[in-house]
Simulated scan of single mutants.
Amino acid sequence: MLGTVLLLLALAEPAFPNPASAWRAEALKRLLEVFGMEDPPPPPAHFKQPPQYMVDLFNTVANADGVTKNPDILEGNTVRSFLDKTHGEKMRFLFVLSSVAKNEKILTAELHLFRLWPRVTDGPKRHHFCQVSVYQVLERSDQDAPGGKKLLAARLVSLQGSGWEVFAITEAVRDWTEDESSNQGLLVTVQGLGGSPLDPPPLQFASSQDHHESKKPMLVLFTDDGRRGASLPVAGFPADSPPQAALPAELPAPRQARLRSTRSLERLQPCQRHPLSVDFEEIGWSGWIISPRGYNAYHCKGSCPFPLGENMRPTNHATVQSIINALKLSEGVSSPCCVPDKLYSINLLYFDDDENVVLKQYDEMVAGSCGCR
């Protein structure tokens, strides 16, 4: 009978919240804020290979840990890739840009088309090139009417071999991001050198349905979200989160003594950089982050004793503060702190909410060196 009553009470009363679980949830929420997200994107429903262009771009911009090789390589801080949504139409392409945030500044937009091997035609070839034109569709129902389309790019393309062709379509993408309803897609035409129609056209591009995923038409968008160099406001964790200072007091006396000894030793060590591993699989983000699997953020630890040597990279202010502290010239003045004095950016390659592949650069994520401040 008592067991039944206890069971009913357990069912009636809400479970007492787990402080450790709440702490972890709040910590992960703050980490998402650092990466400019409210919620983590869901992993793709099925295995999906990222476009090789995006993988190659990541490897060009970053090392294996995601740390930026050269901050001037990337235009802006975000590169988005979108696959064609027309379901196999041969020379018309549509890209859904709903995942582009309103605050993102459009810098450059490129249409990437894979040129197939030319068709075998009877008789000698008269030309080695044809003219390829890319149009922004303005009136889908009547593209050939005056004002039905607008020319974005045109150039001569070789009829020999195969490979990627890239066309600048920035003007159209800016229109689409300002007014989503204006996105009627793109039209590509192939003509002779004098603008004459070619039937059948000797040049074709891979479509989204009929060819391998590595050759699918793609829109690549370079943007800047305005977060470059910006820092999040400092805010504390919830008041009901477990206080770390109380934990050592619960340890056995010998363990407390060892902790105090370790801390004393740390205070005696000079300011220097130490490893700090961030493992995305351990956090639970490996399903949507493609690269890197994790990175070394490093952290700064150690003392800044008087006198501060050049190896501690002190500022003039830190040098003066260390003198005031050593001579006890003013109450409440502590010794300088060991903090990062050089920070590097990292790059993430990941799937967004719409399963598009995004390369994004985040500033001030890795401690490059430490100094006394």
Rank of each mutant, 00 (worst) to 15 (best):
F351L: 05
Q361M: 08
D65Y: 14
D240G: 08
V134D: 02
V157K: 04
L359V: 03
F306P: 07
H87V: 06
K150G: 10
L219A: 04
L111S: 06
S334V: 08
R228I: 11
L193R: 10
V366D: 02
V220E: 01
R258C: 08
T315I: 10
P197I: 05
W164G: 04
P124N: 12
I290Q: 05
L232C: 10
T262W: 12
P17W: 03
K328Y: 09
V320D: 10
I346D: 00
M365G: 01
P40T: 08
T170Y: 03
S322T: 05
P50G: 00
A253R: 13
S133F: 07
K102M: 14
E250I: 07
L111V: 03
V339Y: 02
L28Q: 15
D279S: 11
I73D: 04
R373V: 15
D144K: 15
A318K: 03
A15W: 04
M1C: 14
V358Q: 06
P41W: 01
L308R: 04
V234H: 04
K216H: 15
L151V: 05
E178F: 07
K48T: 05
G147N: 01
D199S: 12
S181K: 13
F167S: 07
L57G: 07
H46I: 08
E139R: 15
V190I: 12
Y362F: 15
M1E: 13
K328R: 15
P202R: 09
G88R: 06
W176L: 03
R267L: 08
V132A: 06
D144P: 03
P243H: 15
S231V: 08
T86F: 00
K328S: 10
S345M: 07
F82R: 04
Q143D: 10
L113C: 02
E364A: 08
G3Y: 11
E171N: 14
G88Q: 08
E165Y: 01
W117N: 13
